[in-house]
C-alpha cells in the first residue's frame, strides 16, 4: 500500500505538486492522468524518491520512505520508463537480470528467473535473450523493460508513460498484455499517462491531476459518469462518454447464458467473452446482426448477446 499525505514538491518557487493526498491500495492499479506539466510524473518519482518531496509524508506499506535507504527502497519497486531505459551495452537477459544481480542472487536462480520472465512476456528465449536492446522493436524493448521491472518480484510497480512512445497497435497489445499479467500478479501499481483511454482501460482507480493537484480520484466508471469538474469532463470527452462506458464492460456482463456451454456449429461467427461491449456493438452494427453467439477462451459457445440489451444497459 502506498500513501501520500499532504505531499508537496517545489522546484524553486514553482509548485509542481501541491498538497496531494492519495492512497493506492495493495494490488490495485492507480493511474495518474493529466496533461503534461500537471505533476503526475513528479508524483511518481517522489514515491521511489528519485525526487525528494518538499513537504508531507509518503508511506510505503506503512513505512516512511525518507527513513529508508533510497537504494533499498527502489530495489523493492519495479520501475518502467517511457524510453525503456535498457542498458545498450547489456543483452536482453543481462538487462532483465539487473536487479537480481544487484541483490546478489545466485547465478542459477537468476537464469531461471530470466527464463520465467521471458516466457511471461511472450518473448522467445532463443531468439531474444542474447540480443541487444537496439536490435529489438519498440514493443519488444518495452516488454523487456517490464520484465526487468518485475525481475526481483517487487510488490510495487511504478510505470512512467511506459507505452507513450509506441505506435497505436503495439500500445494496445502491451496494454492487453499488462492486464493479463496484472490479473496474474496483482502488483500494487502506479501508472502515469496522458492518454485517458489507456487510463480507463488499465485503471482500478484513476487520479486526474491538474496544476499539481488531484482533481478527482475514483473508479473509471465513476470518472465517466460523475466527472467532478468541467476539466475532468473535457478530459474524458463529453460526446463519446457512452461508448467509453461500454468499453469498461465485457460481453460476459450482459450475455444470456444457457446452463451448459455447448460446442458451436462449425464455422460459426461470434464474439469472445472478454470482448468489450463497445467492440460487440460495433461488430453488430457493421454486420447488421441483432444477436450473436458468445464463445469462451476454449472455443465453446457459452451464451448469446443481443444488440437491444447492449443499447439499453451497456452504458
Amino acid at each position: 500500500m502506498i500513501e501520500l499525505k499532504n505531499v508537496t514538491r517545489r522546484f524553486g518557487d514553482a509548485v509542481a505538486v501541491d498538497r496531494i493526498n492519495l492512497t493506492v491500495e495493495t494490488g490495485e492499479v492507480c493511474v495518474l492522468v493529466g496533461s503534461s506539466g500537471c505533476g503526475k510524473s513528479t508524483t511518481l518519482r517522489m514515491i521511489n524518491q528519485l525526487l525528494p518531496h518538499s513537504e508531507g509524508q509518503i508511506l510505503v506499506d506503512g513505512n516512511d520512505v525518507t527513513a529508508m535507504n533510497p537504494e533499498q527502497l527502489r530495489l523493492n519497486m519495479g520501475y518502467v520508463i517511457q524510453g525503456t531505459g535498457l542498458f545498450p551495452h547489456w543483452t536482453v537477459a543481462r538487462n532483465i537480470a539487473m536487479v537480481p544481480q544487484l541483490l546478489k542472487w545466485p547465478r542459477e536462480r537468476i537464469d531461471e528467473r530470466v527464463h520465467e520472465l521471458l516466457t511471461l512476456l511472450d518473448l522467445d528465449q532463443a531468439t531474444h535473450a542474447n540480443k541487444y536492446p537496439q536490435q529489438l522493436s519498440g514493443g519488444q524493448a518495452q516488454r523487456v523493460g517490464v520484465a526487468r521491472a518485475l525481475a526481483a518480484n517487487p510488490n510495487i510497480l511504478l510505470m512512467d508513460e511506459p507505452f507513450g512512445a509506441l505506435d497505436a497497435i503495439t500500445r494496445e497489445n502491451l496494454q492487453l498484455e499488462m492486464l493479463r499479467i496484472q490479473s496474474q500478479l496483482r502488483k500494487t501499481t502506479v501508472f502515469v499517462t496522458h492518454d485517458i483511454d489507456e487510463a480507463l482501460r488499465l485503471a482500478t482507480r484513476i487520479a486526474v491531476m491538474d496544476q499539481g493537484r488531484i482533481i478527482q480520484h475514483d473508479t473509471p466508471e465513476n470518472i465517466l459518469r460523475r466527472p467532478a469538474s468541467v476539466f475532468v469532463e473535457n478530459l474524458v470527452g463529453k460526446q463519446d462518454r457512452g461508448l467509453k462506458l461500454m468499453s469498461l464492460h465485457t460481453v460476459r456482463d450482459l450475455m444470456e447464458a444457457p446452463p451448459q456451454p455447448r460446442e458451436p456449429e462449425p464455422g460459426a461467427d461470434g464474439l469472445k467473452e472478454d470482448d468489450s461491449l463497445r467492440v460487440a456493438l460495433s461488430i453488430m452494427l457493421w454486420q447488421n446482426w441483432s444477436q450473436v453467439p458468445v464463445f469462451n477462451a476454449d472455443g465453446q459457445e457459452t451464451g448469446t448477446i443481443t444488440r437491444d440489451r447492449i443499447i439499453q444497459e451497456g452504458a
Binding site: L50, L73, R74, N76, Y79, G83, T84, G85, F87, P88
Partner: peptide
C-alpha cells in the same frame, strides 16, 4: 534516461 532507469532500479 539510462542513468534515471538505473537509479530507479536501485
Amino acid at each position: 534516461s539510462l542513468a534515471d532507469a538505473g537509479r530507479g532500479m536501485g
